[in-house]
Computed example of a mutant assay.
Amino acid sequence: MQKNPQTEKPIRIAQIIGKAVISGVDSVVMNYYRHIDKSRVQFDFFMDGYNKTPLDEEILDLGGRIIKLTPYEKSMYKNMSECRAAFEKNRYTIVHSHLNTLSVFPLYAAYRAGVPVRIAHNHSTTSRGEFKRNLMKQVLRPFSKIFATHYAACADYPARWLFGTKTVRQGKVRLIKNAVDTSRFYPDTKAGSRIRKEFGLENRFIVGHVGRFVFPKNHEFIVRVFAEVYKKNQNAALILVGTGELETDVRCLVKELGIEQAVIFTGLRRDIPDFLNAFDVFFLPSRYEGLPVVGMEAQAVGLPCLMSDAVPPDTAVTPLVEFFPLTAAVGDWADKLLTYKNREKRTYPDLLRKSGFEIKQEAEKLCCWYEDLQKGAAN
Rank of each mutant, 00 (worst) to 15 (best):
Val263Ala: 14
Leu140Asp: 07
Arg270Val: 03
Arg141Gly: 04
Phe275Glu: 07
Asp156Cys: 11
Val139Tyr: 12
Thr248Ala: 12
Phe265Asp: 08
Ser144Tyr: 04
Val254Tyr: 01
Arg251Thr: 00
Ala191Gly: 10
Glu202Asp: 15
Pro216Gly: 13
Leu238Val: 03
Val254Trp: 00
Thr266Tyr: 04
Gly244Lys: 07
Leu240Met: 09
Leu268Asn: 15
Cys154Gly: 00
Ala237Ile: 01
Leu140Ile: 06
Tyr230Trp: 13
Thr149Ser: 12
Trp161Glu: 07
Asn235Asp: 15
Gly171Leu: 10
Asp249Leu: 04
Pro158Gly: 09
Leu175Gln: 03
Pro158Leu: 12
Ile259Leu: 15
Val173His: 04
Arg160Leu: 02
Gly244Val: 11
Gln170Ile: 02
Trp161Gln: 06
Ile264Lys: 08
Glu198Pro: 03
Pro273Asn: 03
Val225Lys: 08
Val241Pro: 03
Val229Leu: 11
Pro187Asp: 09
Gly242Phe: 08
Ala152Glu: 08
Phe163Pro: 05
Phe143Asn: 02
Pro142Met: 02
His209Tyr: 02
Glu247Arg: 12
Lys172Val: 00
Arg204His: 14
Arg174Phe: 03
Asp249Cys: 05
Pro273His: 02
Ser193Met: 12
Asp188Glu: 09
Gly200Lys: 08
Glu247Leu: 13
Glu245Gln: 12
Val225Gln: 06
Tyr151Trp: 10
Arg184His: 13
Thr266Pro: 00
Gly258Val: 03
Arg141Ala: 05
